[in-house]
Design a protein around this nucleic acid. Structure first.
Lengths: 121, 121
DNA sequence: ATCGTACTTTACCGATTGGTTAATTAACTC
DNA sequence: GAGTTAATTAACCAATCGGTAAAGTACGAT
């Protein structure tokens, strides 16, 4: 995993890490703050590792404050990935358009109920 | 890796697979079509595996046509991931705003050159 | 100095990933 | 039905991933 885009997507491919980003989106948090919701499910070193993955992907920056390590969401780290996705937007919007067109069609057909029973064409 | 969002991001976390999606965005392609750009770097079974990852993530659908397996980009498979990212848009736009504000500031300071040499405040 | 808190590092483990080669299935072609 | 083309499956391998327990580091408080 060399390129930064792969690193970013890989970092996002884990629910624990996404939950951490969600928490950081509400405000900065220390390692133990971030760990709190998960200490039932995993150990502190596991949390440290997850944070390191987020750091290396450039999604989080960690600073020092006495014995604490306040972490901050780095929004810019998501930009490259979002730009990549943007290229494909048309491909889900076009299928939405098809759905919309279909719904429009069946609705107008419903409105013509009784007027014409020949549904074969 | 249970949840579909993790599966999607994991599928995107590989340059070979992203290149395949890029090719499919230009039009449907068979497995060997998709393999062509990579046959110098990897074998056909490796390509089959990559396609299977994309399929399981719902990003690609594969059909049958004689001995060929035409693949199609499924744009809707990206929607969930794009929606997730959208939540964080403000976090990279806000840092862009800060940059913009900074550039505006230094520009206006530059315009005042000679008028006031006290750059300490 | 030593104790507690916050966190990291090390060493290990099993499961998954990304690749291989070789064999197999399936459909068309002669 | 023998051969060719398209693709998959099976068995294997090394590297990475997500986790652990235990030891180590660094800072503040008493």
């Amino acid at each position: 995993m060399q390129d930064s885009l792969s690193q970013t997507f890989a970092a996002l491919a884990d629910p624990t890490r996404r939950a951490m980003l969600a928490q950081l989106s509400k405000g900065d948090a220390s390692v133990s703050d971030l760990a709190k919701p998960f200490l039932g499910e995993m150990s502190l070193p596991a949390v440290t590792k997850h944070i390191k993955v987020l750091e290396k992907a450039g999604l989080v920056t960690k600073t020092k404050d006495a014995q604490w390590r306040p972490c901050k969401l780095n929004g810019e780290g998501l930009k490259e990935a979002a730009d990549w996705m943007e290229e494909y937007r048309v491909f889900w919007e076009e299928s939405f358009d098809r759905l919309e067109a279909y719904l429009k069609k069946v609705t107008s057909e419903k409105n013509q109920e009784g007027k014409n029973d020949d549904c074969q064409k």
